[in-house]
């Protein structure tokens, strides 16, 4: 499946437009992302950062160019299986107060594709959940309904859900937006350690660059749907 060694994501002259919109949301995107790297994507509102992440995952299809995720073209149906090796933390994550899934259940849902009849054992699932909860310091939240948690606490639960999958590629869209100052640095460190321990790669879209800029291997600046600058740290 991993056709090109060392290369996790490749975008070649990618243009993406939303239906009904005449203007492409991203254009002329050329990017190659290797394993064992943490990429920070930054830029103003409407720069196309979220569109870029969703295009890499194959949730949006390019109108021009090609995207390869773990060596598989995102236009292929094989991409569904490839996504099982990836994790995503979306920007719009808030659940209403009456949502009764507990934090533990939400994290466990991240393992949905591994929980078929002959999949992960209950013991392994429990071990993984406790492990990520400890890393992100959310052990005390596990039995609380997700809807009763604050925005920051919910965001940590989603990051835990992403990590529990032990992905090859992590996509995080504004992962610090609701989290307090101190916890931002803890989470940035957790992501950085995960990437280098597991030889994975992470794409982090963030306005708030302070917690993660020094830990990033590559910083991609976007504006008006285009990559304007790529810095190697």
């Amino acid at each position: 499946m991993e056709a090109i060694q060392g290369e996790a994501i490749r975008l070649s002259d990618v243009w993406v437009a939303y239906s009904g919109s005449g203007r492409p949301a991203i254009r002329e995107i050329n990017l190659k992302i290797d394993y064992n790297s943490l990429i920070l994507i930054t830029g103003p509102n409407g720069a196309g950062k979220t569109t870029l992440i969703e295009t890499c995952l194959g949730l949006l299809k390019p109108i021009r160019g090609e995207v390869f995720l773990l060596g598989v073209n995102t236009k292929s149906r094989k991409i569904i299986k490839v996504r099982r090796k990836c994790s995503y933390v979306p920007q719009d994550f808030m659940k209403p107060p009456y949502e009764s899934y507990t934090a533990k259940h939400v994290i466990k849902l991240g393992l949905a594709t591994d929980m078929c009849l002959f999949g992960l054992s209950d013991l392994e699932i429990k071990r993984r959940i406790l492990n990520v909860a400890k890393m992100l310091q959310i052990e005390d939240l596990l039995d609380r309904p997700i809807g009763t948690l604050s925005g920051g606490q919910q965001q940590k639960v989603y990051i835990a859900r992403a990590l529990v999958r032990e992905p090859k590629v992590l996509f995080l869209d504004e992962p610090f937006s609701s989290i307090d100052e101190e916890s931002r640095y803890v989470i940035a460190k957790v992501i950085h350690e995960y990437v280098h321990q597991k030889k994975a790669c992470a794409l982090v879209v963030s306005h708030d660059v302070d917690p993660i800029i020094d830990l990033s291997d590559i910083i991609v600046h976007m504006d008006n749907g285009k990559i304007t600058n790529v810095e190697v740290n």
């Binding site: 569904i80 996504r83 099982r84 090796k85 994790s87 995503y88 849902l109 949905a112 594709t113």
Partner: peptide
């Protein structure tokens, strides 16, 4: 049921 888009992103068909 919890989040359709997230499920899709995680490889649920």
């Amino acid at each position: 049921l919890f989040d359709r888009k997230l499920a899709k992103a995680e490889g649920v068909d």
